[in-house]
Nucleic acid binder design. Structure first.
Lengths: 286, 286
DNA sequence: AGCAAATTGGAATAAAAAATTCCAATTCCC
DNA sequence: GGGAATTGGAATTTTTTATTCCAATTTGCT
């Protein structure tokens, strides 16, 4: 969640000094980035320590971290390609409007998901995946399909993958994990009980836990060693896990491609897979 | 001109300390933004004053201004994709290039898939889905996951859905279809033997056959009553059904939304589903 | 209504970070 | 070879950030 949006949401409930400082930042993010805490204090008629405290109340170590977050929020502001429509799909919308809003929401979710995950963190997850003796995938509902899709891709590369749609089997599999293994857990809410319990068990057993989860603070993120974040906008597309699923796929597809890049024999594996499947395709008739 | 590019261009002509500092910034812009001038000095094995002087030699008042410029350069990198990079992901591609190519390929697949299906044809498929007594979903491999995803969505709306991952069960289910039923068959190649055989059987039994398949002439398209086309570009993303899957999801998501729009009690169904699932979510703790 | 606890927020202070100065060593140019 | 220019770290100064102290105000409970 963009810090600018977060400040906006909390503005009314803030005390006077905080509200004034928050208002200034929302209205003038570019300018704020160029100001010292003392200069911002002058601009708002408040004290320098109030500026630092404002930052800390938002959860940052101090003003410098807040500035970084504002900078990232600005970078994340999505620039729509020409012609794209933003907005919530509504009852009276016609076909073309629905279509464009759906497409716009999907694109936004994917792009923002990329924006909120920095390269270092992706590389960290990639490294862990690459080095894992076994990769166990966990997820329920829509996330279970993303997990399965990713499991097919990993298996295609010859990786040792554990995946089952039954959460009891997932749990039992997790009980066999060890320090050389990795749990890849998907849950947009981060609160799905099955996925959470599996992650807790994997963590207890010293497996590396990689979570693919929403940006909000959540129990799964707290258990994970490595957190990859997804941004979805379910309210706009009548829920049903459309953009959250697309966001997760964006990350798993990226990890797959990056793994292919760093696995010298990947092309062989992919080619072998296609050859093997071709016997299950109808022959072309001229 | 991005400061990162500017540093890159000047790197070879720089003195040793400057080169080292510049190299670090180019390689680790995210990390740099979080470091003080002293911490960056430690990372590079150079002195804190060298860091400040490096900034000043580049034309900035000091390190803080350089940081702002780096932050802006990074923001520009993300905004650039408005133009989108199209191209084949290749062995030497760096992280950012891979990312942009992947995102670009996904967006292109979805946009083109929308373009090749006219509203009349989508509405025809929608009408058939809406009116069907039972909807049977068929697909194998990656298409099977799209089929399953769509089956979950249709079931959430209270529709009578037949879906099983086992193609033999799919075949047996198809043998129970009749004129009031509909087969929704997904296969990008249109040549998957199982899906094809199921479609042929459904067609024989007078069920309506809706195919979601690639643009090329193929056996599945020939059997179908209604053809929805998908455009993927698997060669660009190392195969593995990434863009073909995204294209299929674009269509199934669109059909789902359109169904929600024309089913008066859809919101109730979606809401009931969320409420039901909420008991399987961990409670938020204050 | 009264009182204790909690919150607010500025002034003062301390710590950290950024910027400049000093100067020795090295390189460049005539 | 010698002077000028450049390099770059250590030392120092200045600025910025963060924390502490404490008075005033608000909140919550009896």
């Amino acid at each position: 969640m963009s810090i600018l949006k977060k400040i906006s949401a909390q503005l009314e409930a803030m005390a006077p000094a905080d509200r004034q400082i928050g208002r200034f930042i929302i209205d003038n993010p570019d300018q704020m980035l160029r100001l010292s805490s003392a200069a911002l204090a002058v601009e708002t008629g408040r004290s320098q320590s109030s500026v630092v405290k404002f930052s800390q109340k938002l959860g940052y170590a101090g003003y410098q971290e807040l500035k970084l977050a504002v900078s990232e929020a600005k970078a994340q502001e999505w620039q729509a390609p020409a012609g794209m429509i933003h907005g919530t799909i509504e009852v009276g919308d016609g076909y073309l409007t629905i279509l464009q809003k759906l497409l716009g929401s999907k694109m936004q979710a994917m792009q923002q998901t990329i924006s909120v995950n920095n390269e270092a963190n992706i590389e960290k997850a990639l490294e862990a995946l690459h080095d894992a003796r076994r990769i166990h995938l966990a997820g329920v509902g829509a996330s279970s399909l993303v997990a399965r899709d990713f499991s097919y891709k990993l298996m295609k590369l010859g990786r040792n993958v554990l995946h089952d749609s039954d959460s009891h089997v997932q749990m039992a599999n997790a009980s066999t994990l060890g320090p050389d293994d990795l749990l890849f857990a998907l849950s947009y809410s981060g609160a799905s009980i099955e996925t959470l319990r599996i992650a807790e068990l994997a963590s207890q057993r010293q497996a590396t836990v990689v979570a693919v989860t929403g940006l909000q603070d959540n129990p799964l993120a707290r258990v994970a060693d490595i957190c990859l974040h997804t941004v979805g906008d379910e309210d706009r597309v009548r829920s049903s896990a459309i953009t959250a699923r697309d966001a997760q796929l964006m990350l798993t597809d990226l990890l797959f491609i990056l793994l292919v890049q760093r696995q010298p024999d990947a092309n062989d594996y992919v080619h072998n897979s296609e050859t093997a499947v071709s016997v299950l395709k109808a022959k072309r008739l001229s």
